[in-house]
Amino acid sequence: MATALRYLEPGEVRAWRPAGAAHIRVEIAGDRTILTALLKRAFPLSEPLQLLSIQDGAGKEVGILRTMEGLDPQTREVFDAQLDRRYFTPRIERIESLRQEAGMWKFGVVTQRGATEFYVRNWRDSATEIQPNRWHITSADGGRFEIPNLEGLDAESRRLMDQLL
């Protein structure tokens, strides 16, 4: 039996992280408090601040928050931190090396957080152009990386990427 979507307004939702707790708690006014709440974006790339699924610890959806606009400052801070952790995707600013190694592509890159290396097993299955010149790459270990604007990279980075494109 399918259940109807329950939409929540910002004024109905309050969130906090108890001291020392690993999970956030979410109170829905007049209904319940979720002791182990999960927060997921319905459209993480195109609408990151709209339509957020609030779920219980078992992953069962309790409701969908239409927008983060209008949340109280504490709740907004808790939600921002939770979403940053869940959807952290380093932006590749420069590609320093790219070579095949053991049947995989080994990337040496510089991101907004510094230099790192990662492997990609199968380029066609692991990379998606989500908008013109904007690439999302999933590494062999499940990490996510983004090239926000391929044309905006330096000439050497673009030359290295030409091996894959």
Rank of each mutant, 00 (worst) to 15 (best):
M104Y: 03
E146I: 03
D141M: 05
V62I: 07
N149R: 04
E47H: 12
Q82T: 14
G70V: 09
I24A: 03
E146Y: 01
E93L: 15
T67K: 06
K40D: 14
E129K: 01
Y119A: 12
M104P: 01
W123T: 04
H23I: 05
L52V: 06
I54Q: 13
M1K: 08
R113G: 12
N149I: 07
A140F: 12
I64W: 09
A81P: 00
M1A: 10
V78K: 01
R91H: 13
A29F: 08
I95M: 10
R144V: 04
G11S: 14
V13P: 05
V109D: 07
E96G: 15
R144S: 10
I28P: 04
G30C: 12
T36K: 12
L51S: 07
E12N: 02
P132G: 01
T138Y: 05
D84E: 13
D80S: 05
P73S: 00
I92Q: 07
Q82N: 08
L38V: 07
T111Y: 01
E27K: 14
W135H: 05
G20R: 12
E61Y: 03
E117Q: 15
E93H: 08
W16L: 06
P10M: 04
F107M: 03
G142Q: 08
M68S: 13
A102R: 14
V26K: 07
A2I: 11
V110A: 11
M68V: 15
